[in-house]
Design a protein around this nucleic acid. Structure first.
Length: 490
RNA sequence: CGGGGUGUAGCGUAGCCCGGUAUCGCGCCACAUUUGGGAUGUGGAGGUCGUCAGUUCGAAUCUGGCCACCCCGACCA
């Protein structure tokens, strides 16, 4: 099977689409805007889930599951929340089909739902309606719940993983007695996301706060992690919201404090989605295919035998299987590909396309020398190593690849991060270089809107721990106290 | 929902202007020779030409409707 993908330099967007399909991660489905996540893609998502789930548990959270359907009336209880999602909701209106007598299956108009159901675009409403029954006293708090689920947002334009009508995610929903505690939780989970992005995905991120325009519908503050892709466009990789008492008020969730006074509960919500797959793919991959950091690679090492005849394969396999066992004993996931239906060169290209971090080739010549050929996917370098102590060398190599991928991504981001002091300079940077641009902003939504209309760049975030620096807004010339992070975004 | 484009075998395509039952490559199946970077040869299977209707002796080809998908805009994790 000969496979080729469009080069990044030629058409980045086409490169991404080709890659997702050719690396067997996902496909378009029969349903418009929805994707089929194939086993190779889902295996990576499962690795992400495992790592994140452990991080959530380690920070005291527990998993639960809430319904896919939300009564329409719940939705209208929080005004800005409705505004934010109303335009992209799928609605269930009937509960039965029937045969129309001419062989067609049609909706049974007699089976109209008394109250229409919304397919969840996010679960705040159904969860806060539920929390009302769980919370009476400060003793019931905090509630630290996460759910892994699918959600639906009826998008006009979709792209595999980056934006699909249905996607998989996790959403954490917590309830607290005080604002301070809720803010602390919001920030804690932001840190968890940043930790995951950098240490597992090898994707450097900038933590920050969204402006009012970009804030989650119904939140007081939205925190985010922003990553920069190879083409210079930003990608929001995760969000954590401080919801204040907005949902508690909408759903009348009060608790009795120690002093007996009743108060509304403070809330947070936070989520990352299969969009992370897009971030992962676009951060490291090259024109040969996918590059996956070892810590998220479903298969970390593949062993390819090179041999002549059945007898040759038997000899090579004996040694290869010993190597496999030693690597597995180290906790490394290994695949020994001894299929005789494909030739070695074909397998090399195939595993490069699929992003397996390390490839070991072992042939009869190696048997004589006590060596193997080791190829690393990140740099495509090959070297011949002695079989002695190979498992330790591979273990180090995997760590080295993980570190190297992060370092390269970080260097690239730094090279693509600029400062602009005038609007002219800003526009020039956007058109010629792209990337992140630090610039002064007067803090108004009007200015932000204007800049967005004129340049398609948005304020990705106001970075946390931002350096305070007097300046003037690049657009309005009004005074500003700090630079904010602009970029064109996915 | 506006503007542009495309639908022919699993995938990519030729044929369409000028109507006569479909071309080529990859992949697939069998056998043989092969195996240190996507092997080669020989033989073979696979198509209601997106769909519905119209024109015609005859439609992939001409006409009209519908559907789907892609790209560009408005909306978004």
């Amino acid at each position: 099977m000969s496979k080729e993908i469009t080069a990044r330099a030629e058409d980045y967007s086409k490169w991404y689409n080709d890659l997702v399909v050719k690396a067997d991660l996902a496909d378009h489905s029969a349903v418009r805007g929805c994707m089929v996540i194939k086993p190779s893609g889902y295996a990576i998502w499962e690795k992400m889930q495992q790592a994140l789930d452990k991080m959530f548990k380690d920070t005291g959270h527990v998993n639960a599951y809430f319904p896919l359907f939300i009564p329409k009336s719940f939705f209208s209880k929080e005004a800005s929340h409705v505004d934010g999602f109303a335009k992209e909701c799928a609605v269930v209106t009937h509960y039965r089909l029937k045969n129309d007598g001419k062989g067609n299956i049609v909706v049974d108009e007699d089976a109209k739902l008394e109250e229409e159901l919304i397919v969840r675009p996010t679960s705040e409403t159904i969860i806060w309606n539920t929390y009302k029954g769980w919370i009476q006293s400060y003793r019931d708090l905090p509630i630290l719940v996460n759910q892994w689920a699918n959600v639906v947002r009826w998008e006009m334009r979709t792209r595999l993983f980056l934006r699909t009508a249905e996607f998989l995610w996790q959403e954490g929903h917590t309830a607290h007695a005080t604002a301070e505690e809720a803010v602390e939780e919001t920030r804690r989970m932001l840190d968890v996301y940043a930790d995951f992005a950098e240490n597992w995905m090898a994707v450097p991120v900038i933590k920050g706060v969204k402006t009012a325009n970009e804030r989650f519908a119904g939140a007081i503050d939205t925190y985010c992690i922003e990553a920069l892709m190879q083409d210079g466009k930003a990608l929001q990789a995760g969000t954590s919201h401080f919801l204040g008492q907005n949902f508690a008020k909408a759903f009348d969730v009060k608790f009795a404090a120690k002093d007996g006074k009743l108060d509304y509960v403070w809330a947070t919500s936070w989520g990352v989605s299969t969009r992370l797959m897009g971030a992962l793919i676009m951060s490291h991959s090259d024109d040969h295919g996918l590059v996956i950091p070892p810590k998220l690679a479903p298969t970390q090492v593949v062993i390819v035998p090179i041999y002549k005849g059945d007898e040759g394969l038997a000899k090579v396999s004996e040694v290869a299987l010993q190597i496999k066992a030693k690597l597995q004993a180290k906790g490394i996931s290994v695949k020994y590909d001894d299929r005789d239906t494909q030739r070695p060169g074909w397998k090399f290209a195939e595993y490069e396309m699929k992003g397996v971090p390390v490839r070991i080739a072992i042939g009869e010549r190696d048997l004589a020398n006590g060596t193997v050929e080791v190829a690393r996917r990140d740099t495509l370098e090959k070297e011949t190593l002695s079989i002695t102590d190979l498992e330790n060398k591979i273990e180090h190599l995997l760590q080295n690849i993980q570190d190297n991928l992060y370092k390269i991504a970080l260097t690239r981001r730094e090279e693509m991060t600029h400062r602009a002091d005038t609007y002219e300079e800003f526009k020039k940077l956007l058109d010629e270089k792209g990337g992140f641009i630090y610039a002064h902003w007067d803090g108004t939504s009007e200015t932000e809107e204007k800049i967005k209309e004129e340049t398609k760049a948005t304020i990705r975030c106001i970075p946390l721990n931002n350096v305070q620096e007097a300046g003037v807004c690049i657009y309005s010339g009004k005074p500003s106290t700090q630079r904010v992070l602009f970029a064109r975004a996915y």
